[in-house]
Design a protein around this nucleic acid. Structure first.
Lengths: 250, 250
DNA sequence: CAGCGCCGACCGAACGGTCGGCATTCCGGA
DNA sequence: TCCGGAATGCCGACCGTTCGGTCGGCGCTG
């Protein structure tokens, strides 16, 4: 999604003469904390949920909900400002442009998910336990930051700023590699069959990721509950065992 | 994606007086076959691939590839016209508005997938065989109509025209119900464990649907190959069986 | 000459983004 | 304690561009 079209719209004018403000920063608009991926990453995710005060946080929450529902290109800055109860100019007081509203969000979700899961992973456990923990925590992360997750996963995968894009893809790849490592460990230990690890990993992550399309927070099961059922079905299979039946979960 | 904003932009003017053309149809622009979901549905999907001649088909193919890559709101009519090598006015000669470019595509994919799979399903087979066929054919459908599939699955799920939206959701639900019926039959026959059928169905479909996010046609495995591996893993599980090992696939 | 495919030029609205300026609050010096 | 400038939060009005969509008319073919 989101083409490179926006680039052409940037740089509308370069002022008339060439030296009205010699040292740049002619007025220091958007003086407040602009975005700072790390700030958002730590504020919203990772740690405990803070009371979420301040305009910036409000704007972020509104923006990511709208981006999740209508897509980046389907939401105008006016929409966001209106929903926040402020003027569009005020919006630009906090964020220099539209991209910088979505970028830290997309980057933050991708990075924080990996950090969260990798921090909790324990190579000492069995592969099944590690997989259950990884998948369950992923679902918990999704449930907690649902709108941000959806906005992140469906938008901006080719951020026009290629440095940011590369970095983000790096975090995603690290996350996927972690899942594959768990599966490989299980195969190496004889705990799992000699499966095709990349395919298995993508299957598991796919089923979890697709939850964002149908998961209803008001439903009976929580997201981790669902994800763990996924996990158990993949681990033990859904067929009745050929010999006498035995429960899957230990 | 795709909000209701576009509605506000419609109906730009209603002419000046009220009776310049008393019987409507003042000039019959867009005289060519406009869209006709069924035509597209049958032309593109379902039957054999035809040579794909004519402007309308070209426009469809270009549009669905662009919609898949950049999202509905991220693609302008100018983009589509440019890619087709025609002018924007010519585009409007064939399609009355932007929505009618995407609507038959979204409807066609959703409907044709269900028709295709349900036509091939045979309740006389075992549940495992039915599931494998269903999943494999879904993947085959995806592989064949990849851009259309992506454009359809990521856009326009709340078409402003609610009749069309309801109908489309109906086809999707019928498809999902078919998968659940297969699983229920397996459970009832004792072939499968007493699983949570809706959760299992969503897991399988989720993993297949998510393929559209990473599948590469130039890759080593075809989409049905991958999907069937998914299927086998879900059926037989990936854990080493507790007693002596036995191959999963019969 | 009727119909079709096609187009350049155009329209009003909405887009992302900017500007100057109005209140209010903060804060150090007198 | 009071004062005055700086910073902050905010906004109405505006800019040039691009949007979806329309219009009248051209050239070609049957």
């Amino acid at each position: 999604m989101v083409g490179e079209k926006r680039l052409a719209r940037a740089a509308p004018k370069v002022s008339s003469a060439n030296a009205p403000a010699p040292v740049a920063k002619p007025r220091a608009r958007t003086a407040a904390a602009i975005q700072t991926e790390d700030l958002v990453s730590l504020l919203e995710f990772g740690g405990q949920a803070q009371p979420a005060q301040g305009r910036i946080v409000q704007i972020f929450e509104v923006a990511c909900r709208l981006f999740a529902l209508k897509g980046f290109d389907g939401v105008s800055m006016r929409d966001i400002a209106l929903e926040c109860g402020i003027s569009k100019a005020t919006l630009y007081h906090y964020f220099p442009d539209k991209d910088s509203l979505l970028r830290p969000l997309a980057m933050g979700v991708t990075k924080a998910l990996y950090l969260h899961v990798s921090r909790l992973d324990d190579p000492g456990l069995s592969a099944s336990e590690r997989l259950r923990l990884c998948v369950g925590e992923t679902a918990r992360f999704f449930e907690r930051h649902r709108w941000a997750w959806i906005a992140s996963s469906t938008n901006f995968w080719n951020d026009p700023q290629i440095r940011a894009r590369r970095e983000r893809i790096g975090w995603r790849d690290r996350y996927e590699r972690l899942v594959r490592e768990i599966l490989e460990a299980g195969v190496a230990a004889g705990e799992m069959r000699d499966i095709d690890v990349p395919v298995a990993g993508r299957m598991i992550l796919g089923s979890v990721n697709w939850m964002s399309r149908w998961y209803d927070p008001k439903g009976a099961m929580s997201a981790p509950d669902i994800a763990l059922r996924f996990c158990d079905m993949v681990l033990g299979g859904i067929l009745t065992p050929p010999k006498r039946a035995s429960r899957a979960k230990p």
